[in-house]
Design a protein around this nucleic acid. Structure first.
Length: 637
RNA sequence: GCCCGCGUAGCUCAGUCGGUAGAGCGCAUCCUUGGUAAGGAUGAGGUCACCGGUUCAAUUCCGGUCGUGGGCUCCA
């Protein structure tokens, strides 16, 4: 019998019998590996395990540990779910059922809604299908055959999908009586799926278009070990515990009311956090050569017509009338900032002009997308507009990158960067786009920052850099953005006087770092799970007297601490010390000072740190000194 | 905006197969004055989201409104 050889990822070669499959290759490496194998990649293409190999093929075996392996595993689980649904509800029509980042979904068109009870039944049926260990067979058919098959099966959505496909030959995957239009690859048989869980039911439009029919989507996830499913469910619980809407209420930071849907109310403790954030922001911006402005919330229609918002952004704007004239509530700060720029004649010597604005903007978001502080209808952008000469672009971008980096690091966030290039509907010439995109790119390269290019995702007026920060449980949030804008200076006829004494058009750079103060607060709440670092904590120190007779001593301590702007509260409730400690731990206050007869005599306090426990007795003055240093250093927990 | 679920005390939730309601936490008062994550007693607090309909009777059933939660291409 003749032999072939294939090349593995690490360059090593494996000798196999002629007509050997990917599975045989895995088996040759080890029994365990073959058992874990999900599918493979042959010469760059994903293939099923029963794919027949040829001499000199470069192969990689995929297991659940790789993202590609997971994707195939999830996708196969979605087919099993669809089969279960079809067996239970033969009248259900199949739409699409892809793998997603965390699991999979399948969309169905069914005459009645799925219920939580249905989920249990579907899960049971899925177990059954997995036990049957049905092979997933790949079938190649012509368009005509595929059409005929899905017509017989009354799968209207599959027929629509086929219509949009270019290929003459299509692939189907079959397991038992279930057949799906699918590119594959898939696991070898249903028995490969070890554990899975259906997570939720939701509505979803056919092809994501709100003009199309609303289908029913079932989400699920699968793993190759039960322990991994358990970990995943724990992570979901952890995220739930950190939900800023829940913590915001419990810690009395903010509230939402029917009287102003999407408009958050900030409570005293929330305002402390907010003011610290804003003060810190102003300080950093001042140090980086920014000035600060504040522009009005309501401005005349004429301004919004000129800026283009009236034509391009009207759907998201609120309007009002003053003295019979039309006004709009600002959805962005730039037109206001531009009016300030235009107030004076600028020399090239004034540039770059960095104008910061914590500007409150209102945008009409669809009611269904509102979500705590993350998606609201009014929010404060930590905006700034930089007016500069084209030559200054690169340096200014580098400056913004530095500032952003410094601010994110202060909160302990890591981040990644995306560069978005010219979109379809862009305004402005190709040259100017190229110049702008190059400036952004060169700045990133100079700064040695890795970035992902997001082709065609720029704003219509210019390319942009986006900053996505990562929180401590691995979720990422788009916050900062740097956008180059050539359109507004044009529309508003902005200019400065150059060295030659001629009028010249400045370039505008629009940027945020935190994004929205409100949203950033939400991110901070979830990242720290409400247990803020000392410098951000609304209450920094809680005073806990052992007995009522020590309250007076507590009042003296308040005076001593507030003198240094340390935020302190005294617990005067008649509880035992254990109870007071418990209450304070739940309020997530960083330090507790406990004092009774033993401390009273010598200006001592007993220090207890949140989550750490008793730190022992210390002089009040020494405690103040330590705390002030921790605040000044903005130490992270 | 659309689909599905939910809306009972300040908070978290139970309950009523239709006869106007209950717990824990919190709050108030009292007893207790206690040394590092829950001492005890008593009490106040609810038009059961809102508006209609069915009914002798609606917090409960039905319809609508508002709010809220999850989701609305990560493409066969």
């Amino acid at each position: 019998m003749s032999k072939i050889k294939v090349i593995l990822l690490d360059g090593s070669e494996v000798e196999l019998n002629k007509d050997a499959t990917l599975y045989d290759a895995a088996l040759k490496i080890s029994q365990k590996f073959a058992k874990e194998a999900i599918a493979g990649i042959v010469n760059g293409e994903k293939k099923d395990l029963n794919y027949t190999l040829k001499n000199n093929d470069r192969i990689e075996i995929l297991t659940f540990t790789s993202p590609e392996g997971k994707e195939i595993y999830y996708h196969s689980t979605s087919h099993i779910m669809a089969q279960a649904v079809k067996e239970l509800f033969p009248q259900a029509k199949l739409a699409i059922g892809p793998a997603i980042k965390d699991g999979f979904y399948y969309d169905f068109d069914l005459d009645r809604p799925f219920t939580p009870e249905d989920m249990v039944v579907i899960e049971k049926k899925m177990e059954e299908i997995i036990d049957r260990n049905l092979p997933l067979k790949r079938i190649e058919v012509s368009r005509e055959e595929a059409n005929k098959l899905f017509k017989e099966r009354k799968e209207d959505y599959k027929l629509e999908l086929i219509r949009d496909l270019q290929d003459d030959m299509l692939t189907l995957y079959q397991q038992g009586d279930y057949i799906d239009l699918c590119r594959g690859p898939h696991i070898a048989s249903t028995g490969k799926i070890k554990v899975f869980k259906l997570l939720s039911i939701a509505g979803a439009y056919w092809r994501g278009n709100e003009k199309n029919k609303m289908l029913q989507r079932i989400y699920g996830i699968s793993f190759d070990k039960k322990s991994e499913l358990d970990n995943y469910l724990i992570l979901i619980e952890e995220a739930k515990k950190r939900d800023h809407r829940k913590l915001g209420k419990e810690l009395e930071l903010f509230s939402m009311h029917d009287e102003g849907v999407g408009f958050p109310f900030f409570h005293p403790k929330g305002m402390v956090l907010r003011n610290i954030l804003e003060d810190y922001w102003k300080e950093e911006h001042y140090k980086s050569g920014y000035t600060e402005v504040k522009t009005p919330i309501i401005l005349n229609k004429s301004l919004w017509m000129k800026s283009g918002h009236w034509d391009h952004y009207k759907e998201n704007m609120y309007f009002t009338k003053i003295d019979e004239e039309d006004y709009a509530i600002k959805p962005m700060n730039c037109p206001g900032g531009i009016l300030i720029y235009k107030c004076t004649l600028h020399s090239y010597r004034d540039l770059p002009l960095r104008m910061g604005e914590l500007g409150l903007v209102h945008r009409h978001e669809l009611s269904g997308v509102l979500h705590g502080l993350f998606r609201v209808r009014c929010f404060t952008q930590d905006d700034a507009h930089i007016f500069m000469t084209p030559e200054q672009i690169k340096d200014e971008i580098k400056g913004v990158i530095d500032l952003t980096d410094r601010i994110y690091k202060t909160f302990g966030f890591s981040y990644h960067v995306e560069l978005s290039t010219k979109p379809e509907n862009a305004m402005g010439s190709d040259e100017i786009w190229e110049m702008a995109t190059n400036s952004l790119e060169e700045a990133l390269i100079d700064k040695k920052i890795n970035y992902v290019v997001n082709e065609g995702n720029g704003a219509f007026y210019g390319p942009k850099i986006d900053f996505h920060l990562k929180d401590c449980i691995g979720r990422s949030w788009q916050c900062g953005t740097i956008q180059l804008d050539f359109i507004m200076p044009e529309k508003f006829d902005l200019f400065f006087i150059n060295k030659e004494g001629d009028k010249e058009k400045p370039v505008m750079l629009h940027r945020t770092i935190l994004g929205s103060i409100e949203r950033f607060m939400g991110i901070l709440i979830e990242n720290f799970a409400g247990a803020f670092p000392l410098w951000l904590a609304p209450v920094q120190v809680k005073l806990l007297p052992i007995a009522d007779r020590h309250i007076k001593y507590g009042k003296d301590i308040i005076k001593k601490l507030t003198k240094y702007n340390i935020r302190v509260e005294l617990d005067e409730v008649n509880d035992k010390i254990g109870t007071k400690i418990r209450k304070t731990e739940l309020e997530k206050i960083p330090y507790m000072l406990i004092f009774g007869d033993k401390e009273l005599e010598e200006d001592l306090v007993s220090v207890r740190k949140r989550g750490k426990g008793d730190l022992g007795r210390i002089k009040i003055a020494k405690f103040v000194k330590n705390v002030l240093k921790e605040i000044k250093d903005k130490k992270l927990p």
